[in-house]
Write a protein that binds this DNA or RNA. Structure first.
Length: 437
RNA sequence: GACCCUUUCAUCUAGUGGUCAAGGAUAUUACGUUUUCAACGUAAAAACAGAGGUUCAAAUCCUUUAAGGGUCGCCA
């Protein structure tokens, strides 16, 4: 049984990088007819926010990636974690450490000065003396002191990390609250996760979590560490690079299927295929095919994909979607005609709405300079003739064509330009024949 | 600084020792269709990070250099 999970911490919105790893996890579960679970990592009470949690859940809803079963909240499982802490303490696999934060800082500075990797020195590991007064101890787990911690990563291959690199890390804070690497291992094991798919910024957490798995006697899942998404320059993706919040894509007029198609192709591919429906992704996705290297965010491709999905979308769907962008075509009997004429002119719903408004809303005033140019000469006659034609009870296509067909192509062009300007106040854009339909 | 990971066109990628004088897609440029723009079609340009090996044969294996990324919390 394949069980995957996505485990965000509710400290902000859902990042597109997070969405991609969630997508990979979700696809893996779907592909194997397994389950995809959601867990909220809210052990740090000081930084959690309800709004952030809701925003994340809302983003999942928007893209249509549902989770199976109840959402797990780590904050509600503290009793459970406490049991395991006590168990490790009793078994002598964990111990109380009375080192103060100040002492720790000093130790780190010394190690930095000696150009060593900073780590806890294990001074309380076998402490038998009288503990210092007035210090609330933290609890540290006993990590192996020699040898290698080795694991097989589904995307990176074999990872070897010297045990000396992993210190006796804290599993419970001075106030008793359990820490991240401890609870993640417990939850993943208890939730039955068979595939852990996460960002490779967690690669170094894995040996620590393995220490916990071993200490508690849990079976190891398969780990898959996915490389990061960088910006177009190959640097870390930050807010300065534009939208990183998944929900920003909704307001910018992207379709979720375009975003998902874009993200799935970042670090994963299937031959030369570029367009993937959800069903195809599910059928073809395998975490083994995820690339080792990081990839760069590329807006042009997303835009292209979005334009593709807009063109593919049914009229009904677009009518519904467009309502959020100030265009209501619900009871418009020309909706289909309008959409056919505009679909190919908008890469996003925002652009599409803008094009539609050009048709729906007649200009009431014109820029003096442009209108002088547009309405000079025989413009009045042309427009009147055009208006007459439009007022015919049923203008036939033959009539409109005869109107369009000028012998003199320059004059023809001139006429169309003037007409278009009168209707949309733009000197480029729609085919004027649109108005005669 | 220490440790770990990565490296094919501008970008996403195909590629697992010969079928690669490296394929597809986006973006770019040109031409065509079109009154214009868009869209579409056709074409062009564009890459194996560098250096050493191994081999009859290397983008693919090894070593090394460089560059980029990540991690070094009583954050997650």
């Amino acid at each position: 049984m394949t069980v995957t999970r996505f485990a965000p911490s509710p400290t902000g919105y859902l990042h597109i990088g997070g969405l991609r790893t969630a997508l990979f996890s979700w696809l893996t579960a779907q592909h194997n007819k397994g389950t995809f679970l959601l867990r909220i990592e809210d052990t740090d009470m000081a930084r959690n926010s309800e709004e952030a949690k809701d925003a994340i859940l809302k983003a999942f809803e928007w893209v249509g990636m549902g989770n199976d079963g109840e959402v797990v909240y780590q904050s509600k499982r503290f009793d459970l974690y406490k049991q395991y802490i006590d168990q490790l303490l009793e078994e002598g696999k964990a111990y109380k450490c009375y080192m103060s934060k100040e002492e720790l800082t000093i130790l780190r500075e010394e190690q930095m000065a000696k150009k060593e990797r900073t780590r806890y020195d294990g001074r309380y590991r076998d402490f038998r003396g009288t503990p210092p007064v007035g210090v609330d101890p933290v609890i540290r787990i006993k990590a192996p002191q020699e040898g290698m911690i080795t694991f097989e990563d589904g995307v990176k291959g074999t990872i070897n990390i010297a045990a000396s690199e992993v210190d006796d890390f804290v599993i419970a804070r001075a106030d008793g609250a359990p820490t991240y690497n401890f609870v993640v291992a417990i939850d993943d094991a208890l939730m039955g996760c068979s595939e852990v798919i996460r960002g490779d910024d967690h690669l170094y957490n894995t040996p620590k979590q393995i220490v916990v798995y071993k200490a508690l006697g849990f079976d190891l899942p398969n780990f898959n560490h996915v490389a990061m998404i960088n910006n177009e320059q190959g640097k870390k993706l930050s807010k300065r690079d534009g939208a990183t919040d998944v929900m920003d894509y909704k307001t910018m007029g992207y379709l979720p299927e375009a975003l998902l198609n874009f993200l799935v192709r970042l670090g994963w591919s299937h031959g030369d295929q570029e367009i993937f429906s959800l069903e195809e992704m599910i059928a073809l996705f395998d975490p083994k095919d995820i690339n080792k290297s990081s990839s760069n965010y590329n807006l042009d491709k997303l835009l292209w994909l979005n334009a593709h999905y807009i063109k593919e979308a049914s009229d009904e769907k677009l009518v519904t979607l467009l309502k959020d962008f100030g265009v209501d075509l619900e009871d418009n009997d020309k909706a289909s005609m309008i959409l056919t004429a505009t679909k190919e002119r908008g890469k996003t719903l925002v652009e599409l709405a803008k094009q539609i408004k050009l048709i729906m809303i007649a200009p009431t005033e014109y820029d003096a300079k442009s209108s002088k140019k547009a309405f000079k000469g025989e413009a009045k006659e042309i427009l009147n003739a055009f208006a007459d034609m439009l007022s015919l009870s049923s203008p036939t296509s033959k009539r409109s064509i005869s109107f369009c067909d000028g012998k003199d192509s320059r004059r023809k062009r001139d006429r169309f330009w003037k007409n278009r300007y009168a209707f949309t106040r733009k000197s480029y854009g729609f085919d004027d024949r649109f108005w005669t339909r």
